[in-house]
Deep mutational scan, measured.
Amino acid sequence: MGFKLLSKLLVYLTASIMAIASPLAFSVDSSGEYPTVSEIPVGEVRLYQIADGVWSHIATQSFDGAVYPSNGLIVRDGDELLLIDTAWGAKNTAALLAEIEKQIGLPVTRAVSTHFHDDRVGGVDVLRAAGVATYASPSTRRLAEVEGNEIPTHSLEGLSSSGDAVRFGPVELFYPGAAHSTDNLIVYVPSASVLYGGCAIYELSRTSAGNVADADLAEWPTSIERIQQHYPEAQFVIPGHGLPGGLDLLKHTTNVVKAHTNRSVVE
């Protein structure tokens, strides 16, 4: 069995187990497998329904001669939608809004960016022009300005110390501490036991640490421990890039980060 097929099978099995364990909360999309990078042309966006009122959005972007996937989250909030992270750029984010209108038909009224990198804030200006209120932590807003990236308009308070959590509509926002970046936030959907790890969490097929220019490698494993301790009931975990899975993604990420750190020390 090929690795790609095995990865998709694991996603399907995880979703099936969740649907059985929580039949009222989960209505997993039966329309197909989780979209992969090879299936999404740059400039297009796919939506994948995880649970009743919960979707991931998947886009792709060219970077350094390669094409990478990027995940975000959409959560229903009454007759409105909360968006977590842009679709990595203005063109993708405009396509995301169009796809949401086509498939869901509810307005996106608020959006949260989970850290300051372009795959999370690139497209904020498109959201703002569409009347979406954009939010991020003060740290993310400051770092985005320093980096020359787009800056969300509103500040999220109460997320300055490791372990801080605040309720934001249908989700809980959690600051686990520094990891992929010093400002990275985690998003949890309690009604569906869905954990969105953003770039602080890796997919299972990833074996290298990737972009760690703004990471705190020493603190990252401790931050992941905080996530595990705060959300032990999480059933569906979405990484910032690639295929979702279960809580095993947290341990896998820790292993990859520690291996990278150990290699760096040896070198």
Rank of each mutant, 00 (worst) to 15 (best):
33 E>H: 13
241 H>L: 01
196 Y>M: 06
170 P>W: 04
175 Y>T: 02
159 L>S: 02
236 F>E: 11
243 L>W: 07
33 E>V: 07
104 I>Y: 02
160 S>I: 12
142 R>W: 12
116 F>Q: 03
162 S>M: 15
154 H>E: 12
197 G>C: 05
34 Y>C: 11
93 T>F: 01
169 G>F: 04
86 T>N: 01
191 S>T: 09
191 S>P: 05
169 G>W: 03
101 E>D: 10
36 T>F: 12
75 V>Y: 02
178 A>N: 15
195 L>D: 00
57 H>W: 01
179 A>C: 02
104 I>A: 03
195 L>N: 00
128 R>C: 04
199 C>R: 01
183 D>C: 00
121 V>D: 01
134 T>F: 02
230 H>Q: 13
164 D>A: 10
99 E>W: 11
136 A>V: 03
204 L>T: 11
217 L>Y: 09
46 R>P: 04
243 L>A: 08
9 L>A: 07
6 L>T: 09
146 V>F: 15
235 Q>F: 04
15 A>H: 06
141 R>H: 05
180 H>V: 00
263 R>N: 13
105 G>L: 15
12 Y>A: 12
84 I>C: 02
91 K>G: 13
241 H>G: 01
80 E>W: 10
114 T>R: 00
152 P>M: 03
250 L>F: 06
114 T>Q: 00
261 T>C: 12
136 A>H: 04
246 G>D: 07
76 R>A: 13
125 D>S: 07
76 R>E: 11
172 E>C: 03
95 A>M: 15
216 D>A: 11
163 G>E: 09
251 K>H: 12
155 S>Q: 06
239 P>A: 05
171 V>E: 02
155 S>P: 07
98 A>I: 15
132 V>I: 14
65 G>K: 13
7 S>M: 15
146 V>R: 10
126 V>R: 09
91 K>W: 15
58 I>S: 11
173 L>M: 07
62 S>K: 15
115 H>V: 00
100 I>Y: 03
200 A>V: 08
131 G>S: 09
166 V>H: 05
37 V>F: 08
213 A>M: 13
47 L>C: 02
254 T>W: 12
28 V>C: 10
67 V>S: 07
179 A>S: 05
174 F>R: 03
229 Q>A: 15
86 T>D: 00
60 T>M: 10
125 D>L: 12
10 L>R: 09
97 L>N: 00
16 S>V: 09
237 V>Q: 00
214 D>M: 06
177 G>T: 00
166 V>L: 10
238 I>A: 01
101 E>G: 13
156 L>A: 04
109 T>K: 14
7 S>F: 15
171 V>W: 02
128 R>E: 08
206 R>M: 06
148 G>L: 11
203 E>V: 03
89 G>Q: 03
69 P>H: 15
229 Q>H: 13
34 Y>Q: 11
140 T>R: 02
67 V>W: 13
56 S>H: 09
206 R>S: 13
103 Q>F: 15
99 E>P: 03
205 S>E: 09
57 H>P: 00
54 V>I: 11
226 R>D: 04
103 Q>D: 13
143 L>T: 10
25 A>Y: 09
150 E>N: 08
222 T>S: 12
7 S>T: 07
191 S>V: 07
143 L>E: 10
155 S>H: 15
64 D>Y: 15
101 E>V: 11
33 E>M: 14
124 V>Q: 05
80 E>Q: 11
180 H>E: 00
81 L>I: 13
252 H>M: 03
237 V>R: 01
23 P>W: 13
59 A>W: 02
242 G>W: 03
28 V>T: 14
177 G>I: 01
182 T>Q: 07
107 P>E: 14
91 K>V: 14
99 E>V: 14
12 Y>Q: 09
42 V>S: 15
134 T>I: 05
206 R>V: 08
75 V>M: 05
